[in-house]
Amino acid sequence: MEIFLQQIINGLVQGSVYALVALGYTMVYGILGLINFAHGEVVMVGAMLALSALTAMTGWGLSPLLALPLSLLLAMAGCMLLGYSIERIAYRPLRHAPRLAPLITAIGVSIVLQNLAMMIWGREYHAFPQLIANQPHHIAGAIINDMQIIIIIMALAIMAGLMVVVHRTRLGRAMRAVAENQHAAQLMGVDVNRVISITFMLGSALAAVAGLMVSANYGLAHYYMGFLLGLKAFTAAVLGGIGNLRGAMLGGLLLGLIESLGAGYIGDLTGGFMGSQYQDVFAFFVLIAVLVFRPSGLLGERLAERA
């Protein structure tokens, strides 16, 4: 029972991160019908930027309570700029090209980002500095620490904020209009290019937050971390129904739970044949299962080829 509860907690923490990253995929998909393969790398860059800033600031003797939000803001700004540039350079010129073209540039951008990061930050794992006391709390035998609580609360707050932006503001209305029908939105006076740019920037800002969260949770950051994380967050977005914001949140949390429970029990289920080192394969099988049985995802509408 303790194991179960512990896995639920771990799953929720991990799932919150997936949800934030999945939102980035789903927003771009909703508006452009494009899978932004490079999104995972934006998360990685966010984590690396935040980590570097944090290390530098605490080195100058800044209080962790000040350094943490400052470096987060810095990482967000950096990622927003990155997201904006990616769209301008790699996607916008190809908006009317065959569908294969932006997919290929997307994978190109990922590779470039990954290797640039490796040149800048090296191949080694970077440890996340222990800044706050990170008190563990015991709940019915399971442990949750301060950082994990902060992650869950922050993720929930950001998601709530995003829903307000999308459903209650002018910008959100413009975004929904572009997602519904780009051409019509343009005729109605919506600056489509601007909305698309902002969408990429919003998604990238969320990615920066997620990047910081992941590295804080695991205590590590690495130039290769964006790849698997991106793949899983994409799975989360598909699970919830790609293009659907609530779906991305639900899918993220669910995938976190599936992964964590799966990793916790796979040993028992397979009679010890497979262990928790197979944690990373669950997302893949979830993805395949969703595509086979419910390609529109849990909350999504049809997504088969449109006319």
Binding site: R99, L100, L231, M274, I288, L291
Partner: peptide, 28 residues
Amino acid sequence: FPTLRLRGDYLAIVTLGFGEIIRIFMNN
């Protein structure tokens, strides 16, 4: 089979995942 009735993007991402999965199995 599961992906080709959907948009091409799904094949891309599923094959991307498969490449990684097969490495996990080879490693473990």
